[in-house]
Design a protein around this nucleic acid. Structure first.
Length: 129
DNA sequence: AAGGTGACCGGGA
DNA sequence: ATCCCGGCCACCT
């Protein structure tokens, strides 16, 4: 997979923004895209998480020290679908792992991988960087 | 270079 | 509630 210069900025801001989701809260792929003024790019938000390790490595290679991204520190598990469910993404092991991470921080996850957004959702209109 | 894919989303049946 | 479909757009073949 290749990464264009244009998208590097986007990827970096996706990771930075996800890092702002409070402990014990969740938000959606679409809302991340919305906050970055690219409401049509929710799919790309998912993609940036799918390739988190690879992309972070690539970004870090040319990044200033303060812009280094530790893949481990990006709370990807706090991002779910706008429907309030954990995305299956093919492998049910992924779902259960994400559910475990969320439960560890106090988020209730139903056995159908559903989450109550009223209770745990984080959907600010804007976020300062 | 044209067509396929997808950690998405909203609306309609 | 759930499934389906069309729209979306950067990336990948």
């Amino acid at each position: 997979m290749k990464i264009t210069d244009e998208s590097k900025v986007f990827y970096h801001s996706v990771y930075a923004l996800i890092g702002k989701i409070p402990y014990g809260k969740v938000t959606s792929y679409g809302h991340i895209a919305y906050l970055l003024n690219r409401p049509q790019n929710s799919r790309l938000v998912g993609s940036s998480l799918k390739h988190l390790k690879f992309i972070a490595e690539s970004l870090n290679r040319e990044a200033n020290p303060e812009d280094i991204i530790e893949p481990e520190s990006v709370p990807w598990w706090r991002v779910i679908s706008s429907a309030g469910k954990i995305s299956p993404r093919g492998n049910s092991d992924n779902e259960s792992r994400q559910a475990r991470f969320l439960r560890e921080e106090g988020v209730e996850v139903s056995n159908a991988y559903r989450i109550d957004l009223e209770k745990y959702g984080w959907f600010p209109d804007e976020v300062d960087f």
